[in-house]
Amino acid sequence: HMTFVALYDYVASGETDLSFKKGERLQIVNNTEGDWALAHSLTTGRTGYIPSNYVAPSD
């Protein structure tokens, strides 16, 4: 899985969403939902949907 870094803070709007903080590292599990991606946080160990425009690929 590619690793991504959060560009902004995001507060989950539902139970299936994943909250994260700017700078948090995430792995995209499934990116077939258009503007949303299923992601796993390497920081918190949690998995949920995130807005895909809130993250960018990290080196």
Score class of each variant (00 low, 15 high):
Ala56Val: 14
Asp59Val: 13
Glu24Tyr: 05
Asn30Gly: 15
Thr32Tyr: 13
Thr16Ala: 12
Glu15Gln: 10
Ser13Asn: 10
Leu26Phe: 15
Ser52Asn: 09
Val29Met: 13
Gly14Cys: 15
Asp9Ile: 04
Arg46Trp: 06
Asp9Trp: 03
Thr44Gln: 06
Lys21Trp: 05
Tyr49Phe: 11
Leu7Asn: 04
Glu33Arg: 11
Thr32Ser: 11
Ser19Met: 07
Glu33Val: 12
Ile28Lys: 03
Val29Ala: 08
Ser58Glu: 15
Val11Ala: 08
Asp17Lys: 11
Tyr8Lys: 07
Thr3Ile: 15
Pro51Ala: 02
Asp35Lys: 12
Thr44Glu: 03
Ser41Lys: 01
Leu42Tyr: 06
Trp36Val: 06
Ser52Tyr: 15
Leu42Pro: 06
Gly23Glu: 02
Gly23Trp: 04
Glu24Gln: 02
Val55Pro: 04
Glu15Trp: 08
Glu33Leu: 14
Arg25Phe: 14
Asp9Pro: 04
Pro57His: 10
Gly45Met: 05
Phe20Gly: 01
Asn53Phe: 11
Val5Glu: 06
Val55Leu: 11
His40Asn: 06
Arg46Leu: 11
Gly34Gln: 07
Pro57Ser: 09
Phe20His: 01
Thr47Val: 09
Asp35Ile: 11
Val5Pro: 01
Ala37His: 09
Val11Lys: 09
Ile50Val: 10
Arg25Leu: 15
Ala37Gln: 11
Ile50Asp: 00
Asp17Gln: 15
Pro51Arg: 05
Tyr49Val: 06
Tyr54His: 07
Val55Lys: 04
Asp9His: 03
Val11Ile: 11
Leu18Asp: 01
Glu33Phe: 14
Ala6Lys: 00
Tyr8Ala: 08
Leu42His: 05
Val5Asp: 03
Asn30Tyr: 14
Leu18Gln: 03
Ala6Val: 11
Glu24Cys: 03
Gln27Asp: 05
Ala12Pro: 06
Glu15Tyr: 09
Tyr10Glu: 00
Asn53Thr: 10
Trp36Thr: 05
Phe4Trp: 13
Lys21Cys: 11
Leu18Glu: 02
Thr43Gly: 05
Val11Tyr: 10
Gly45Ala: 03
Ser13Gln: 14
Lys21Leu: 09
His1Asn: 12
Thr43Asn: 08
Gln27Lys: 11
Ser41Tyr: 00
Ala37Tyr: 15
Arg25Val: 15
Pro57Trp: 13
Val5Cys: 08
Leu7His: 04
His1Gln: 12
Leu42Gly: 02
Tyr10Val: 02
Leu42Ala: 04
Val11Gly: 04
Ser52Gly: 06
Asn31Arg: 13
Asp35Val: 11
Lys22Glu: 05
Val5Lys: 04
Asn31Val: 13
Phe20Ser: 00
Gly23Ser: 02
Glu33Thr: 13
Ser19Ile: 06
Asp59Asn: 11
Thr16Arg: 14
Glu33Cys: 15
Tyr49His: 06
Ala56Glu: 09
Leu26Gln: 00
Val29Arg: 08
Trp36Ile: 05
Gln27Trp: 14
Leu42Arg: 03
Met2Leu: 12
Tyr10Pro: 00
Gly14Phe: 09
Pro51Leu: 05
Asp9Arg: 01
Ala12Arg: 05
Val11Ser: 09
Arg46Pro: 00
Arg46Cys: 09
Thr43Ile: 09
Glu24Ala: 01
Thr32Asn: 10
Tyr49Asp: 01
Tyr8Gln: 08
Glu33Tyr: 13
Tyr49Lys: 07
Asn53Glu: 09
Val29Leu: 15
Ser41Pro: 00
Gly14Ile: 08
Met2Asp: 09
Val29Phe: 13
Ala6Phe: 02
His40Ile: 15
Ser41Gly: 01
Asn31Cys: 15
Thr47Ile: 10
Ala37Asn: 06
Ala6Arg: 00
